[in-house]
Design a protein around this nucleic acid. Structure first.
Length: 567
RNA sequence: UGUCUCAUGGUGUAACUGGCAACACAUCUGAUUUUGGUUCAGAAGAGUCUAGGUUCGAUCCCUAGUGAGACAACCA
């Protein structure tokens, strides 16, 4: 496609996902005054996870793309499950991801008065009634998906009686659960959602925002569409499990309005990630049963966990962009998420040398007490990151895995009588392997070639391998937390009879070790990110104290050597 | 003997609304490299769930089947 078409180039014709197609069609038809107004509607009953990030990016992203607006609205209609702790964390996470709801922060609970009035309106139309039965009785009359339900004996109460009873429900005359207000739709509908769903239930519970003002609370279905309507939402985007609710969403709207403006509900497939779980309920279980250390444990896919793990907002937004939006069930390979961070951190994170599993090296021909400063590049992908100085001396640490006494073919690291380059330093040769009584290697005696210093301009010879190292006296001892996937199975819910997802928990998902880093990191700030050269990306954990730095391993670097020896 | 939704390489998403399938990840080669990183070049891998139909022509439209998912909280 190299011919003409400046027009096509300028319009940047990328393919649209199915929601964008719907929006563009609506726009073309002038529907809802050609506005695009979305919303992200979390219930404050848990922490946000990467699946929510998909929805956040979708909703805010669509608004941005089509010059519209996106609201943040808490769907707080169930006081017994909700809490301000969650509200706060959600606000923080959405902000952190990089989205701005400006002055449009709303709560469904702000609409309780309006919702109540609408309920009264529906009762007056004869389309809602108070049911005195218990939840069990109502449930027993509901039927099954393939068998119609039975009508409640209270279904045909007079409007006056319904009005009176509903008012008394509101004023607190009845105990929790004693009565419900039900929509009068169709007990024989093949769609279970339409079999006279509950609109209001009695809960004498303290609400995190309205306090004790109310003792009746609207159900999700009776609150969501109306909240959308109140806010002027044009596209109410939710996940697939609400598909069967759409007729009810529309039914309630039909009862309260006849305006031309209408919010439209569209469903997309939620995100699933291999080797992890996304269910709020299960996440809560992991936290409460202490299988992980809190909602921000770096092993779970909560946004606070990913943030602590070292993920960046950019990485997550790019990830959301890459996975796309569609209606079919999907399981995304975690490798794609990991690729997103690596791609982002490769450009942003400064390189640094760290030895996580040290073995001592003595450069026998290097003068005792001598210290040299070598120049190191902070980030080869970003010249503006500058350079730093690192100290070289007679006694060093190298990575234990960078030495082998009896190496396989193509092992380009240190071996007896062979040479490697110490990054930014000299070429060294191993002359002697010192072992303890158990036969474990405790020390390597090497010699260096003073003519091979990096940057000296003299290239006497090339060596195949370069390894990282640390001058022992200049190294900082730090704690390093190595994370592995939390679950052993690609699908954690895939378990034997009688067991649950927790039986798939990886017992080795966290390994805490002590390692060493350059002293240039002494004052590294919490959440700052680094690439430990040849190892992976790491970030400073909030558990860091003035005494000791703590690092989290975000992700390993691609390791083609590891791949090779696997075969 | 329910209703609704979905079905494209290993994974995910496309295919300008009918002109024989593209991109990303993963996999595998090779090159470059003072990170076995990055980057670059390349390869392999689907004939689009099945069977009919409409059409000159179907991933796309229609019908039937198959498979998967959702729905029976006073949860969202």
């Amino acid at each position: 496609m190299t011919h003409n078409n400046t027009e096509e180039d300028s319009t940047k014709k990328t393919s649209l996902n199915f929601i964008e197609q719907i929006i563009e069609q609506n726009l073309a038809e002038g529907k809802n005054e050609s506005r695009v107004h979305t919303r992200f509607p979390p219930e404050p009953n848990g922490y946000l996870h990467i699946g929510h990030a998909k929805s956040i990016c979708l909703n805010f992203g669509l608004a941005q793309k089509y010059n519209g607006l996106c609201n943040l609205r808490f769907d707080d209609t169930n006081p017994v499950k909700e809490d301000v702790e969650y509200v706060d964390s959600i606000l923080e996470d959405v902000k952190w991801l990089g989205f701005d709801w400006e002055d449009r922060l709303y709560y469904a609970s702000d609409y309780f008065d309006q919702l109540f009035d609408w309920a009264v309106k529906i009762i007056k139309k004869g389309k809602a009634y108070v049911d005195d039965q218990s939840a069990e009785e109502i449930s027993s009359q509901r039927g099954t998906p393939s068998k119609p339900g039975m009508e409640s004996p209270f279904r045909n109460r007079s409007i006056e009686e319904n009005l009176d009873l509903f008012q008394r429900m509101k004023s607190g005359e009845f105990p929790s659960g004693a009565r419900v207000l039900r929509a009068k739709v169709d007990m024989a509908s093949p769609n279970m959602q339409l079999r006279d769903p509950a609109m209001y239930r009695i809960k004498h519970a303290h609400h995190h925002r309205t306090g004790d003002q109310w003792c009746i609370y609207p159900m999700y279905d009776f609150a969501h569409g109306q909240s959308d309507y109140i806010e002027g939402i044009t596209n109410s985007i939710c996940t697939l499990e609400f598909e069967v609710h759409r007729p009810l969403y529309d039914w309630y709207l039909d009862q309260i309005t006849d305006t031309e403006y209408r919010p439209v509900q569209t469903e997309f497939a939620r995100l699933n990630l291999s080797y992890t779980i996304m269910s709020k309920r299960k996440l809560l279980q992991l936290v409460e049963e202490k299988h992980v250390n809190g909602w921000d444990d770096p092993r779970i896919p909560t946004l606070s966990g990913l943030r602590r793990r070292g993920y960046t907002p950019d990485a997550i937004r790019n990830f959301a962009e890459t996975i796309g939006v569609a209606k079919r069930d999907n399981v995304i390979d975690v490798a794609l998420l990991e690729y997103s961070v690596k791609q982002d951190l490769n450009k942003k994170a400064n390189r640094v040398m760290a030895v996580l599993d040290p073995i001592k090296v003595v450069i026998t021909n290097y003068p005792e007490g001598q210290i040299e400063e070598l120049e190191a590049i902070n980030n080869p992908e970003d010249e503006s990151a500058g350079k730093r100085r690192i100290q070289f001396s007679r006694e060093l640490y190298i990575e234990r895995s960078d030495f082998m006494e009896d190496p396989p073919r193509k092992f380009f690291r240190l071996t007896p009588d062979k040479e490697v380059r110490l990054r930014y330093g000299y070429i060294i040769k191993c002359n002697e392997v010192i072992k303890n009584a158990q036969g474990e290697i405790t020390e390597l005696h090497c010699t260096y070639d003073p003519d091979t210093r990096s940057g000296s301009g003299i290239v006497t010879r090339k060596v195949k391998g370069t390894i990282h190292w640390l001058s022992i006296t200049h190294a900082l001892e730090v704690e390093v937390r190595l994370y592995d996937r939390l679950f052993l199975n690609e699908n954690p819910d895939n378990v034997e009879e009688g067991k649950d997802f927790k039986s798939n928990i990886n017992p080795n998902s966290l390994t805490v070790i002590n390692g060493f880093v350059e002293d240039s990191l002494a004052n590294a700030e919490v959440e700052s990110k680094f690439q430990f050269e040849r190892t992976g990306y790491f970030c400073v954990d909030k558990d860091t104290t003035s005494e000791k730095l703590v690092f989290n391993r975000t992700v390993l670097l691609r390791d083609s050597w590891a791949k090779m020896i696997k075969k």
